[in-house]
Write a protein that binds this DNA or RNA. Structure first.
Lengths: 228, 228
DNA sequence: CGTTCTGTTGAATACCTTCAATTCGCGTGG
DNA sequence: CCACGCGAATTGAAGGTATTCAACAGAACG
């Protein structure tokens, strides 16, 4: 196994010397999770955090009656479950593998020790947490100040920008898209249908073609999707 | 001026040597903001962050049509505006003094330099950002998975716990309470009225007496506030 | 003592959800 | 290769929670 090689290209560990990577590779524990497997649950005690090597993981909250809000979808090379490593002791949310997944686990103490010796990993982690905070402000803004069509438009534009194409492909199903946007699949269906009628987009299964990006941007920024 | 003395007791700077506090006090810039003053706006470029010495500051987002969502209310000794110091360059939200306020400003570069020399401040900052992330998960959970009565109940219980009394006193007005909970003042009024009718609480101006904490906890956890 | 901001209450409305009924899509197995 | 079955997605109708708009009451402030 070459954990060491995987570690080299993880942004969190950028700037570390080979010797430190070596050290990390020794303390890391490798885990596999099949699709659907719960990795940790809200309230679980934690003594370390994960870095995702392959697959995907959703971080989410669940309401008493089972409704689910996705906070974040973790992609390869991102760390997750890092909050209790630095504050509190328990995970504030749940994590589930939404694909077959391989992850490394790093014990809290080892990482902190490493940080004490070399600040670069702490600075990388600060950058990462700051970025998460930024994403959360957008999520809160969406949930509180925008309606579902606006959030959906913003999401599609985000994917379009990330993938650098106007012909986007949803890599999550609509139930999870709904959960990510703080709504339900039915609502997503209805709004996509309306957007098609208004000629903003064209839908073919999981593929969506953005036709009128200008109008979508207007929407995402706060305009109304009025339809009669 | 004794900036140095103020710095000693700020949690973020816990664990630093006097020499380092001394250093910090030299690079800090002291600012005063009158109540109502905008300290920074979303999108502004930032080259440092603030630590609040006295007064209070709200961090908030605004929608196109002027509705406001408070993300955080900063109390004395807490840092704020720290996200762009570590990721991105711009503030993700707005900051406004809601009382007459005194704050210190620390240039990004100086703090990072300090972190490189001594990891304790980086670890303190990691703890702080992690705590913010935790708070955000609760905010998102509230906005997405709970109804207003549930959020309001949770808020009152939080204050009650923090102040260690069942006779809480709102230290913000209802407009801002509404903005913090992701709703509007009218809705707060109506729900408080309902809670009084159901004998959960008793209201006298800004004072609220929690009568049936058990029921409030049930509510906060997700039960319904059914009323006919 | 008036002005202004904050808070309350009512009626109408809007957006989203819930519930239920189909339909679609796709993998599996005959 | 087709048929079946099951989950995902769509669509309609009804209902609920919160917002909007408007009018008014109350408190704070100069």
């Amino acid at each position: 196994m070459d954990i060491k090689n995987s570690l080299k290209y993880i942004p969190l560990f950028k700037g570390l010397f080979d010797r430190q990577i070596e050290e990390l590779s020794k303390i890391a524990m490798r885990y596999s999770f099949l699709k659907g497997k719960i990795i940790f649950s809200e309230g679980d005690e934690a003594d370390g955090f994960y870095v995702l090597l392959s697959g995907r993981v959703k971080i989410f909250k669940v309401s008493r009656d089972g409704k689910e809000q996705i906070l974040h979808i973790i992609e390869a090379q991102e760390p997750f479950g890092e909050v209790p490593a630095f504050a509190g002791k328990r995970f504030p949310a749940n994590a589930e593998a939404i694909e077959d997944t391989i992850a490394l686990f790093f014990p809290r103490e080892s990482i902190i020790q490493l940080m004490k010796n070399d600040p670069s990993i702490a600075l990388n982690m600060l950058a990462l947490l700051s970025q998460r905070l930024r994403q959360f402000t957008d999520l809160v803004e969406g949930l509180s100040l925008k309606e579902v069509p606006q959030r959906l438009a913003a999401y599609m534009l985000l994917i379009s920008e990330r993938e650098k194409t106007d012909n986007i492909e949803l890599n999550i199903n609509k139930k999870q898209l709904a959960s990510l946007l703080g709504t339900i699949p039915e609502t997503i269906s209805r709004i996509l249908a309306k957007m098609v009628v208004k000629n903003l987009i064209d839908v073919n299964g999981k593929r969506i073609k953005l036709i009128d990006k200008r109008a979508l941007e207007e929407l995402a920024y706060g305009a109304k999707l009025d339809i009669q």
